[in-house]
């Protein structure tokens, strides 16, 4: 009878726990501050940037506020977004183990595989919330401080405001997909320890290492296997017509990571002694 609400009940509960935490809101707030600070800094600086100076798109922000979100995403991707992602992903199992609540969930009982899936989906929801928060905050502050109008894409084509908003949502979605591999890696690392900070640090280091390797030309054969490799390619969404090949490659790569680290997490967690 309640068969249908089975997993939904736990999923809803997982999200409620996540969004009861002040930490979650603090991280979303900090993510929102990235475009806001960026826009204010640009607004206040008197010298106009020459086109091409500073991060990509930065010079365009003053001409069209809708570029704020894209620019902020570029700034957030190397460190800040992965930082929040590693906090959430590293916390999944290790956080419950550290608190001791894991043993009470398991004897409730909840099936271990089911708990893993729910934990993973929870982190994915956070990634979605984070990327959409960033883009939405960018659009809003951009609209407040700068003129807003039809957007000139990288290809030179011009799109109208509603379509520009649609592309923003696509960028948020693309970035969420980009995080899937890292989230799965985090889930796995989280099953290895009862100390959440350890797991979080591990995931963050992995994203740093991956980005460094991606910048070493000597390792070019490795690049397309790195989970950070396609992160910045969201810029392809700003072309007309949209360049979808990186989208597809990225999705495949991320799903590969999910399969590998999801299996490792499953193998580890379903046989692990819960001694905390």
């Amino acid at each position: 009878m309640f068969a249908k609400s089975l997993s939904l009940s736990l999923m809803a509960s997982e999200l409620r726990v996540m969004f009861t935490r002040r930490r979650t809101w603090a991280m979303l707030f900090a993510i929102a501050m990235i475009p806001i600070l960026l826009a204010i800094a640009v607004y206040l600086s008197s010298d106009r940037l020459a086109p091409g100076e500073g991060p990509p798109f930065l010079d365009r922000v003053t001409q069209n506020g809708l570029f704020t979100g894209f620019t902020a995403m570029l700034l957030a991707l190397p460190l800040f977004l992965p930082l929040t992602i590693s906090v959430v992903a590293g916390d999944t199992i290790a956080g419950e183990a550290g608190l001791g609540t894991l043993r009470y969930l398991l004897i409730a009982p909840v099936n271990r595989a089911r708990l893993l899936v729910v934990k993973y989906l929870g982190t994915l929801v956070f990634a979605l919330a984070g990327t959409f928060t960033l883009m939405a905050a960018g659009a809003m502050i951009g609209a407040i401080l700068f003129p807003v109008g039809p957007v000139t894409l990288l290809s030179g084509d011009v799109i109208q405001i509603p379509e520009a908003l649609g592309r923003m949502a696509l960028v948020a979605l693309y970035t969420t997909i980009s995080m899937m591999g890292m989230l799965a890696l985090g889930l796995f690392i989280s099953t290895l320890t009862t100390i959440p900070v350890g797991a979080m640090t591990g995931v963050l280091i992995a994203s740093g290492v991956s980005q460094i390797l991606d910048n070493l030309p000597q390792l070019s054969w490795l690049h397309e296997w790195l989970f950070t490799h396609y992160w910045l390619d969201f810029a392809d969404i700003l072309r007309q017509p949209m360049e979808l090949s990186s989208f597809g490659d990225n999705l495949l790569l991320q799903l590969g990571y999910v399969a590998v680290f999801g299996s490792l997490a499953y193998g580890r967690f379903t046989t692990k002694d819960i001694l905390s």
């Binding site: 409620r16 009982p109 909840v110």
Partner: peptide
């Protein structure tokens, strides 16, 4: 409520 929700 959280723990009870976990129990399907």
């Amino acid at each position: 409520i959280r723990i009870d929700s976990a129990d399907r």
